[in-house]
């Protein structure tokens, strides 16, 4: 059971770890790290499904007749680009938040906003 679906177990564990960090941690940078782990698990999911038993890398040669499915790899290349952009934008926002509030901790930021609302 576990052996046959080893990759998928890893995907689920990574996914839950990342997701948990995103929703539980109050540090904005750690949240982005969690988001990265979460996205990476999806990349692993796609790459795992493209594997064909006994297949080799999808490059045409005379020596091989069975190839792995190249399409998910291509899709994931795009998804990685999206992930990198999200991380870059997220970190840029965190940098600006740090400049504006002097902290990257969510609870402290909300505290400052509440004080601002009352005055």
């Amino acid at each position: 059971m576990i052996e046959g679906y080893f990759n998928y177990w890893v995907v689920i564990i990574l996914m839950m770890m990342g997701f948990y960090i995103v929703i539980s941690d109050s540090n904005l940078i750690k949240k982005i790290i969690g988001l990265n782990i979460f996205q990476t698990s999806v990349f692993v999911l796609f790459i795992s499904m493209s594997k064909v038993k006994g297949g080799t890398a999808p490059i045409l040669t005379d020596e091989a007749s069975v190839y792995s499915n190249p399409l998910p790899h291509v899709l994931i290349l795009t998804a990685i680009v999206v992930g990198v952009s999200t991380t870059a934008l997220g970190l840029a926002l965190v940098a600006k938040i740090h400049r504006a509030y002097g902290t990257v901790d969510e609870t402290l930021i909300h505290g400052q906003d509440d004080i601002q609302d009352e005055t």
């Binding site: 988001l35 996205q39 938040i97 504006a100 930021i109």
Partner: peptide, 18 residues
């Protein structure tokens, strides 16, 4: 400055959605 935190919140939730 709250525009920054709301954009960040949207980024986190939006990325999870996507």
């Amino acid at each position: 400055r709250r525009a920054l935190t709301s954009a960040y919140q949207y980024l986190i939730m939006g990325t999870i959605g996507a």
